[in-house]
Write a protein that binds this DNA or RNA. Structure first.
Length: 982
DNA sequence: CCCCAACCGTA
DNA sequence: GTACGGTTGGGGG
């Protein structure tokens, strides 16, 4: 190296972490290998080299090296064992990428340098000094403040991500001291991330002022007695020795015994084919194309390189030694030495289950500085768990009372400090139940101030927020103008992984995975009459409860997240679960208009009809009784009146179901049909016309349902409070309820529903020629089934024949049994059995599919939808015939119902971006989902355009993941109310 | 006050 | 025969 030569030193390790956190969290190769950081690294290198070789702009490197950390065992640990002792391990997805990034560096024909016992920063310092000594310049590609001490007339820094030069002036502007004082400044402030001790209460601003005043650190320490501020003076004097150690820790070693001489770092020409081969192996298609173009390599003729990196194959990365060794050790203890993703995930689960929870260590954060410090740490670590505490389970009514955070520190695990959690109370009230007070409790951060800080964290794309049942917190934050970005939801992780294996609530998951029972809510807030809202809970108790929630959530994430790739459900989670959180939150927030007057009028009508029927019933029974009591009704019908009782219920009571009552009515008894009619009236009244108005939100005047993403085993949503997925439609009387669901003035309700989606899915998965043909031709599927089975032509087919075929088609979807079909059609078991036999003769493919599905459920313990969603049946091998048969039917139904559910989920995820792109997002709002139907509220002028777009998105929702063998058909209609639109 | 059974609304 | 949630009555603690 000679005068005017220019050495570029790339801080590889620093870059890996920035690339990892700045990019979408999970970029993967087709085999599931995470490569997001590799991709970021390659793109950055290519950009840098392209610019660097362009002599028309800026500086041109003559020499270049990429420097990595080797391990955490450096000479600094000798000086101060606590140094970097609380670093978290790198994220699981990052681990396999360390080796790949070194390979990438070599593929770029660049020297890749690392040394045992030294940090990348020391090597960088050494080479920078060597370059300057040789008369050249050095540019460090990094934005790490630890490197800023090296900046000088001939040493610069460059932040590649922000495209920003960092020279002497920039250092002074940012830190208030010139580069040569950076060591003194860092020694004073310390560094909580690397565990460098400093002086408590001294941050960068104070440190800069002190250094300005005293000139340098030694003078400051000598004359510390002269500092005016009492606290500051005492702290500095008390920590003199520690500060000296800190200075040693932050001072970069400029004389590492580097093996590679400076001249060997000379920048070589690009080896086009070699680089293209590597990029192809990584499946970085656009970069491959660009590199091929620039280097003249023929991409099509180059074979992808053999890249040998798998999960856990090479864990060389900064601070990996402890974590890596432990993981391997536990893997061998638990799984016989396996190193597959599943083994690693298992080992990890065992590790966190064994980690004690320490409620005593939870902090209560009461001032903004402490909160900001926690948020800063969350940023540095790139992830945190988060939970809100409010006054209500209803996210639309809930008022924020406080929130909690949890952070993860790998190396503290032995004493139960691996995870730190804190509660930040915001609006807890002082005293209890006092009429005078109602004021805020002492020691809480100002609400708006805290919320602004929280907003910064939650909206920060580079920090992963982990929550349990995030949709709740997401909606609460949305109502405060905060949009959570970059998140995971432990409930949804569990759902994607373990659907069918029990509930996904936090208490159940904590018990299952951590063997830990969190403090029950009722122990904190009471229950029933004595329950208080969370703002009346004592802050100390609230801290224990709330911080524990964040703590447990973090642990669950650590256990569950690594299982995703190991069990091949990453795509299910990322495409079908997680993206629904914002979509459903917005739907819930919008709500739907319900006309009180209509409901009130209907309620009156129903009351009258029910009262009339009541009179008649008492007359016929010759006494008054509670018609709503099946027990009393049974006694009247089958005891007193002596009607022939048919079925009995499980508990030995006479059954009074519609089935039984209808049969009695058919025999000519007048009372049973009155009962059936009375039940219908009272059901409509109590469940709908009387209950719905109570759900009208006081502020929005609309009804906001709540959707559960993890309530069903199959992937369907569930709606509650109120359930808007079971609004009546089958009877004329019931449909009147739907006329109360209305669009705002100037708008229409648009309903779009999939036609026969489950039978279409069946035709696809079971690959049935006749069914596929029928759907392709658009003919009546039930009539086709009847025609095949009974040899009756479709033209002029009797209604009863078609009805039976329809029941059979539904039966197939439900995992048919002769018993069930007989019940449904009111025929003998043997006759139903004959139908089924005949059906399978005409459609043998269906029988094959059903047998194959049962076999798969037995062999694997689960079945899958066409998009890979898994539904587990742990009891499929039960020796109890009833239990086993039930599981078999459910296993047959799940791929069909679940695939249909996946399809509409995909449509829901896509619709809003598509509306946005078409300029319809402001006028077209998705409000409700009813399994195969979506309901929108659309401005009159855009109804036609919106309808076309929505139908198109829904009909193509399976693409490109699955190309269906039958077309999906969507019917849509718009009207002022839901009844007419449906 | 809590939980369960029975019943019934939807796809 | 599949998948849900809500209301009511009624029993037990």
């Amino acid at each position: 190296m000679k005068k005017d030569d220019h050495l570029f030193l790339i801080d590889g390790s620093g870059f890996i972490f920035r690339a990892f956190h700045a990019l979408p969290p999970l970029t993967r190769k087709s085999d599931g290998l995470p490569v997001g950081a590799v991709s970021g690294f390659c793109n950055m290198l290519w950009k840098l080299l392209t610019q660097a070789r362009d002599t028309s702009v800026g500086v041109t490197p003559t020499h270049l090296a990429v420097i990595f950390d080797y391990s955490s065992k450096t000479f600094r640990k000798e000086i101060y064992p606590e140094y970097k002792a609380q670093r978290p391990p790198p994220p699981e997805e990052l681990v396999p990428q360390f080796a790949l990034i070194r390979e990438a560096t070599r593929a770029f024909n660049l020297p890749c340098i690392e040394m045992e016992g030294f940090e990348a920063d020391d090597i960088i310092a050494t080479y920078a000094k060597m370059a300057v000594a040789a008369g050249g310049d050095a540019t460090i590609i990094s934005s790490d403040k630890d490197l800023m001490q090296l900046v000088g007339p001939n040493v610069h820094m460059y932040d590649g991500m922000k495209d920003r030069q960092i020279g002497v002036d920039e250092v002074v502007a940012k830190w208030g001291v010139p580069p040569e004082k950076m060591i003194d400044l860092q020694a004073l402030t310390g560094d909580s991330i690397d565990n460098v001790p400093g002086v408590p209460g001294i941050g960068p601003k104070t440190a800069a002022t002190l250094l300005e005043q005293f000139g340098d650190l030694d003078t400051l320490l000598e004359q510390a007695e002269t500092i005016k501020q009492n606290k500051r003076r005492e702290n500095i004097i008390a920590n003199r020795d520690l500060v000296k150690i800190s200075r040693q820790l932050v001072t970069l070693k400029q004389d590492c015994p580097v093996e590679t001489p400076l001249d060997a770092l000379k920048l070589e020409d690009q080896d086009g084919p070699k680089l293209v081969a590597f990029l192809k192996a990584m499946e970085f298609n656009s970069l491959t194309r660009r590199v091929a173009e620039a280097t003249g390599a023929e991409a099509a003729e180059i074979e992808p390189a053999k890249v040998d990196a798998e999960w856990g194959s090479d864990t060389h990365g900064p601070d990996m030694e402890t974590g890596g060794e432990d993981t391997a050790k536990e893997a061998s203890a638990d799984t016989g030495g396996g190193n597959t993703p599943a083994d690693l995930a298992k080992a990890r689960a065992a590790r966190f289950a064994a980690l004690p929870i320490n409620r005593e260590a939870y902090e209560t954060i009461r001032d903004i500085d402490a909160l900001n410090a926690w948020i800063a740490e969350a940023r540095d670590r790139g992830l945190c768990a988060f939970d809100t505490e409010t006054t209500s389970l209803d996210a639309m009514q809930a008022e924020l009372v406080g929130f909690s955070l949890a952070l993860y520190d790998e190396d503290e695990k032995d004493d139960g400090q691996a995870i730190r959690a804190a509660y930040i109370p915001l609006t807890h009230k002082a005293g209890q139940d006092d009429l005078l007070g109602g004021g805020l409790a002492e020691g809480q951060i100002d609400f708006d101030t805290a919320l602004a800080a929280l907003k910064g964290l939650l909206e920060d794309e580079s920090v992963l927020k982990i929550a349990q049942n995030l949709k709740y917190d997401y909606l609460v934050m949305l109502r405060h103008g905060i949009t959570v970005k970059n998140f995971d939801d432990t409930m949804l992780l569990s759902y994607a992984l373990d659907s069918g294996m029990g509930g996904h609530g936090m208490d159940a998951l904590s018990e299952k995975w951590l063997g830990h029972q969190p403090i029950p809510f009722k122990e904190v807030a009471g229950s029933g009459r004595n329950m208080v809202t969370f703002d009346h809970v004592d802050i100390t108790k609230a801290t224990a409860y709330a911080a524990e929630d964040a703590d447990v959530t973090m642990r669950l994430w650590l256990v569950l997240k690594p299982r995703l790739p190991a069990e091949h459900v990453t795509t299910v989670y990322e495409r079908l679960e997680r993206p629904l959180v914002p979509v459903l939150s917005r739907m819930e927030e919008r709500g739907i208009s319900v006309d009180r007057q209509i409901l009130s009028r209907l309620s009156g009508e129903l009351a009258q009809k029910a009262a009339g029927l009541e009179e008649e019933i008492y007359q016929l029974a010759d006494e008054k009784f509670n018609i709503g009591s099946p027990k009393q009704l049974g006694e009247i019908l089958f005891g007193k009146m002596g009607l022939p009782g048919g079925k009995k219920t499980k508990s030995g009571q006479w059954s009074t179901s519609v089935q039984v009552l209808d049969d009695l009515a058919a025999e000519g008894h007048p009372l049973p049909s009155k009962i059936v009619e009375w039940r219908q009236m009272t059901k409509l009244k109590s469940t709908y016309t009387d209950a719905l108005p109570g759900y009208i939100h006081p502020d929005t005047k609309r009804v906001h349902t709540s959707y559960s993403l993890a309530a069903t085993s199959t992937g369907r949503l569930a709606s509650s409070e109120p359930n808007l997925q079971n609004i009546p439609v089958r009877t004329a009387e019931g449909r009147k309820i739907r006329t109360a669901f209305i669009a705002n003035p100037g708008h229409k309700l648009l309903s779009a529903d999939y036609s026969q989606i489950e039978l279409r899915v069946l035709a696809h998965v079971a690959d049935i020629a006749q069914l596929k043909q029928a759907f392709a031709d658009g003919i009546d599927i039930h009539a086709m089934t009847a025609s095949e089975m009974f040899g009756v032509p479709v033209e002029g087919m009797p209604g009863e024949v078609r009805r039976r075929a329809k029941a059979i088609n539904f039966g197939i979807i439900y995992g048919i049994s002769a018993f069930g079909l007989a019940n449904q059609l009111g025929i003998e078991r043997s006759e139903a059995g004959d139908y089924i036999k005949r059906y399978f003769e005409r459609f043998p493919g269906i029988r094959d599919y059903m047998e194959a599905t049962k076999a798969a459920a037995r062999d694997n313990g689960y079945v899958e939808t066409i998009f890979g969603r898994r539904i587990h049946y742990p009891e499929i091998k039960s020796s109890n015939h009833q239990v086993r048969s039930f599981n078999e039917r459910a296993a047959i139904n799940a791929p069909i119902q679940g695939s249909a559910a996946d399809i509409i989920r995909r449509a829901m995820v896509r619709i809003e971006p598509e509306l946005q792109a078409a300029g319809l997002a402001e006028t077209t709002k998705m409000l409700l989902q009813v399994h195969d139907e979506l309901i929108f509220e659309v401005e009159d002028g855009d109804v036609d355009k919106a309808q076309t777009l929505i139908v198109d998105v829904m009909e193509n929702a399976s693409m490109p993941a699955v190309s269906m063998a039958v077309p999906l058909k969507v019917d849509a209609r718009a009207a002022h109310n839901w009844d007419e639109a449906h």
